Simulated scan of single mutants.
Amino acid sequence: MRVYYDRDADVNLIKGKKILIVGYGSQGHAHANNLHESGCSQVKVALRPGSKTAEKVKNAGLEVTTPAEGAQWADVIMVLTPDELQADLYTEHLGPNMKPNAAIAFAHGFNIHFNLIEPRDDIDVFMVAPKGPGHLVRSEYVRGAGVPCLIAVEQDASGNAHDVGLSYACAIGGGRSGVIETTFREECETDLFGEQAVLCGGLSKLVATGYEVLVEAGYQPEMAYFECLHEVKLIVDLMYEGGLANVRYSISNTAEYGDYCIGKRIVDDYTKDEMRQVLEEIQSGEFARNWVLENKAGQPHFKAERRRWANHDIEQVGEKLRAMMPWLGEGALVDKSKN
């Protein structure tokens, strides 16, 4: 594993570039503001005409432009819109307007790895992928730290793509904690697997199912919420600081014994086989094809599931309980008025 730090990069490379951030969601907000505060004086944010987000960008002291106009101006374009929008965005607005030897960058390898975007031969293509949500990328930078980043180069038309990418990664704070060399394929496939099998799909379903089992057995919903959702943060924070060993060092002997005896009954060989199948579907492109088709159909299943989960009892109970703990909002990672 090759890791780079601030001392390995020339941050002046990115400071001298005209940088277009496409999108101003979680990652876009973080990248644009971190770059600006690192001394990149030429940063613009591309939004669709009439976007309500424009006011947030202007309040941050940044200039708003359109994707097409920004592409004509920029030396480096970082695409931070949702995956499902990027192919059309590139085909219709970015690709036709980019300057020769300009660079297009991504924070996730999805569209490049699965050939949904086929970039022009005369431009650089690199990736800078922070290993954390944009809200954390921003908050860590503000406190003087940084979230580790991945870097990969897919196309090096200028011969300078890696150096520019590394400079960019350091300017958003990645060089403070480490920038790890990878490939678009490795980042994309491991990221999708982690999201689906563990971090999002696996964890959210485990939490909700545990809640349902307790409530269906007659326990108070509030007790089920605390035990199956609220206290997840305690365990995750311990993992974050020192891995699984740190959790087992910190919890009671009773909890540790239950960990060893019961965990393997919940996540058993069947679960592992399903995880392998999930990985195969990612590697073969089956998941990507299904997601593309879902979007072409107007996202019917996706939107139905979003509505169903929004109405789950765990959300209603959680909203009531969180209102009893106002300190949870202090220093919150997500502030919808800003990002």
Rank of each mutant, 00 (worst) to 15 (best):
2 R>D: 10
5 Y>M: 13
7 R>A: 12
20 L>D: 00
24 Y>C: 00
25 G>S: 09
27 Q>F: 05
32 A>P: 00
49 P>K: 00
57 V>G: 01
63 E>V: 04
73 W>P: 00
77 I>Y: 09
87 A>C: 06
89 L>N: 02
102 A>P: 02
111 N>H: 13
127 M>L: 14
128 V>Y: 03
129 A>Y: 03
130 P>T: 04
133 P>K: 04
135 H>T: 14
140 E>Q: 13
141 Y>Q: 03
146 G>E: 01
147 V>N: 01
152 A>S: 08
157 A>Q: 07
161 A>Y: 05
164 V>S: 04
167 S>M: 04
173 G>K: 00
174 G>R: 03
174 G>N: 03
184 F>R: 01
188 C>S: 02
189 E>V: 11
195 E>C: 05
204 S>V: 13
216 E>H: 14
221 P>V: 07
225 Y>M: 11
229 L>S: 02
231 E>H: 13
232 V>R: 09
235 I>R: 05
243 G>T: 13
245 A>F: 12
252 S>V: 14
254 T>Q: 11
257 Y>I: 09
257 Y>M: 07
262 I>A: 11
263 G>E: 06
264 K>T: 02
265 R>I: 10
278 V>Y: 06
279 L>R: 14
280 E>A: 13
283 Q>I: 11
291 W>R: 14
292 V>C: 11
293 L>A: 15
301 H>Q: 10
307 R>G: 08
309 W>R: 11
310 A>E: 11
315 E>W: 01
333 L>Q: 14
337 S>W: 00
